[in-house]
């Protein structure tokens, strides 16, 4: 999941914002979204710490990587807005 489709979705949002059909995203909104993702990251890290089965560890690592990617994207969004 690269940034290409996110850019498209952001463009659509900007368009709806210009038309008065969307609410303006402010920095504190993105911070809140990052806070929620970070809370999940902490939870998953703790779970990973106590996981023993290699399959379970692999699954948790994948989940962690997805959440971290989401956080990165949210930070990028924060710059864009």
């Amino acid at each position: 999941m690269g940034l290409r489709n996110i850019v498209k979705r952001l463009d659509k949002y900007q368009q709806r914002l210009d038309e008065g059909k969307a609410e303006k995203i402010k920095a504190h909104h993105v911070e809140k979204a990052i806070e929620k993702l970070a809370a999940k990251e902490v939870e998953l890290t703790e779970e990973l710490g106590s996981a023993e089965k290699p399959e379970k560890r692999a699954r948790l690592e994948e989940k962690l990587s997805t959440i971290r990617a989401q956080i990165e994207k949210a930070r990028w969004l924060s710059q864009e807005i």
Binding site: R9, L10, Y13, E23, K24, K26, A33, L77
Partner: peptide, 12 residues
């Protein structure tokens, strides 16, 4: 705005 953020960040 929070819904807008989720829509932008969520994969289609």
């Amino acid at each position: 705005a929070m819904a807008e953020i989720e829509q932008i960040l969520a994969a289609d």
